[in-house]
Computed example of a mutant assay.
Amino acid sequence: MEIAILVPCYNEEQTIGSVIDDFKRELPNAKIYVFDNNSSDRTSEVARAHGAIVRFEPRQGKGNVVRSMFRDIEADYYVMVDGDDTYPAEFVHDILAPVQKGEANLVIGDRLSNGTYFNENKRQFHGFGNNLVKGLINKLYKSNITDIMTGYRGFDRLFVKSMPVTSPGFEIETEMSIHALDNRFLIKEVKIDYRDRPEGSESKLNTISDGAKVLRMIFTLFKDYKPMLFFSVWAALFLVLGLAVGTPVIVEYVQSSFITKVPSAILAVGFVLLSMLSLACGLILDTVAGTHRKNYELQLNRISDRSERG
């Protein structure tokens, strides 16, 4: 069974050689693919010198890199890991075991449960952001995933070849998690250690802007995957506002048979109409989403059949 190690990279000259060497030691028969995302340093040269297969992705952003990886690389099992040497290679066997045994389609390397992430990572706001995203997704899908945004993951071929990557940047980890939850893929978490970047290696993450992108991605996927719930929330909000504005108007009419608060009456009617429109949109899009799920299941069957024949 062929194993592919996928390493997205952007200016990781200092660490990529160590990452490749570590994974070659743990999995000598695996193919290691380094995707250089417009690096301005010697990332690609170092990767090639250490024996990796180097590919280039001109569209900037980790999501664009993952899209090309999933589309172009053929293997039976996949491991994705960052090129910054923060994820120890010795845990790759724990990452691969569940997908090789058929126990999971997606394996998540949980950095948080062992406590090493909070000990090593000095960016306190990142921990807050991780917890916020994790709480939102777990509440939305009634799940209990511990580490939503880890960059150390294992996949089987079915997940990789059926994953529609739409995120351009660092939102990709969140998109993967939501896609797996919504389509009821088998998910398993494996506890791993985390180490901070070596001195001189700089993170490409921007806590505020990347956090905003992740939250926007959750909002968008919530609308796409659960339209009935999404639009029902808006319908309820508009209805409450309509009742709040319109109740004094109704009380006045009951008491005097006249309406003097005409602007309030118009505003209340507008809110109620928006509530009805939101509910109607939710019903229509929920039917569309249901049809999409059925078609997606048929697509999964076709991919599975091709994999078995191959």
Rank of each mutant, 00 (worst) to 15 (best):
V133K: 00
G290Y: 00
R123L: 08
M1F: 08
P28D: 07
V251Y: 02
D41C: 02
F125K: 10
S256C: 02
E252N: 04
T291W: 12
E74S: 14
T166G: 13
I145E: 06
W234N: 08
A47Y: 01
N144T: 06
Y141T: 06
G83T: 03
Y194K: 03
G270E: 06
F56P: 04
F35N: 09
Y225L: 09
A265H: 04
M228N: 00
N183Y: 06
L243A: 10
L96A: 00
V160M: 13
I259F: 05
V249N: 06
R195N: 12
G310H: 13
R111G: 02
D210C: 09
P58F: 05
L300T: 01
V107D: 00
Q100C: 13
S278D: 12
K191G: 08
V79R: 01
R111D: 03
E297V: 13
D224C: 14
Y117S: 12
E45A: 04
G242H: 10
D110R: 02
D193F: 04
A244K: 11
F159D: 00
L158F: 07
Y152G: 09
Y152L: 14
G61Q: 12
K31Q: 08
D196L: 05
L239R: 09
K261R: 11
T43K: 00
R293D: 07
L186R: 11
F23M: 07
P248W: 05
K294F: 09
A265G: 09
S264F: 08
K191R: 11
E57H: 04
R111E: 13
D224Q: 14
P8T: 03
S68P: 06
G63M: 02
K223S: 07
V65Q: 03
L221E: 03
V65D: 02
D196T: 10
E57S: 14
Y194I: 02
L300N: 02
E12V: 10
D286I: 00
R71G: 11
A235Q: 05
V99K: 12
I218D: 08
L229Q: 14
R59H: 07
L140G: 02
R153I: 09
Y78H: 01
G169N: 14
E173V: 07
L239K: 10
D110G: 04
S167E: 03
C281T: 08
V99P: 15
D182V: 05
N29H: 13
E202V: 10
D182E: 11
I208T: 07
E202R: 15
A180I: 04
S39C: 07
A97N: 13
V240I: 12
N119Y: 10
I148F: 07
V165L: 01
Q60R: 14
I145P: 09
P164D: 00
Q299E: 07
N29E: 11
L241A: 15
K142G: 08
T207G: 13
F56S: 11
R42P: 10
V81I: 10
F219H: 15
F118T: 14
